[in-house]
Amino acid sequence: METLLTTVIALAPRLVDGAMTTVAITLLTAPFAALFALIAGLARLSHVRTIAVAAVVYVELFRGTSLLVQLFFMFYVLPLIGIELSPWTTGVATLALNFGAYGSEIVRGALLAVPRGQIEAALALHMPPNRVLRRVLLPQALPAMLPPFGNQLIELVKATSLLSLITISDLTFVGNALAQTTGRVTTVYILLLAVYFGIAYTLTLAMRALERRYGVARTMAAAR
């Protein structure tokens, strides 16, 4: 046990570095993913056919192929056709596009779930379409998006581990390196799993707090 403890202590600084990177990737990617999700989700409901079709193509392309394949494609192929991006940019962009595609389904579902009568009341009050969207549709749809977006955030934390395969020193990358150099394979991988769990759990708690504040129950002022 003595040696296990010293191993853990010896590994800790590098693992903490890796964990910080993983958290940074997650927090950097999430807003972009949410933005892409919102744009694509709205675009799919557009009256302008080309916009709606473009959104469908984007969503199906990223949902229909594998994240790792997308990552390698962006990493290996884009430079060949003259697009030079840093591994970080490549990684964050691919993750954001991928999760944006999945998230757009959440956005679309939530928008379509707003009761028709709410939209009709807004139209009967002669509100312009943009205002209907901003003032009636989104405020009612956003709270419903929070729980599924929370799940997506956990999926995102897990997915960031793939960035270790395009040379980014995230938690997984550091862990693999440590497993090789120290030979303490079991300890390292268990620690790795535990740290990921810790990150995911913390984010789950944060999302729950957010839901309590802005979730369906609160914003709709359910009586009592």
Partner: peptide, 24 residues
């Protein structure tokens, strides 16, 4: 005026009434 009222559920009674006068 609708059979099922269709008040905006996330707005107060007052906000329901003032929304269109202000923004329309």
């Amino acid at each position: 005026v609708f059979q099922h009222f269709n008040l905006f559920l996330h707005l107060t009674a007052l906000e329901n009434v003032t929304e269109a006068p202000i923004h329309v």
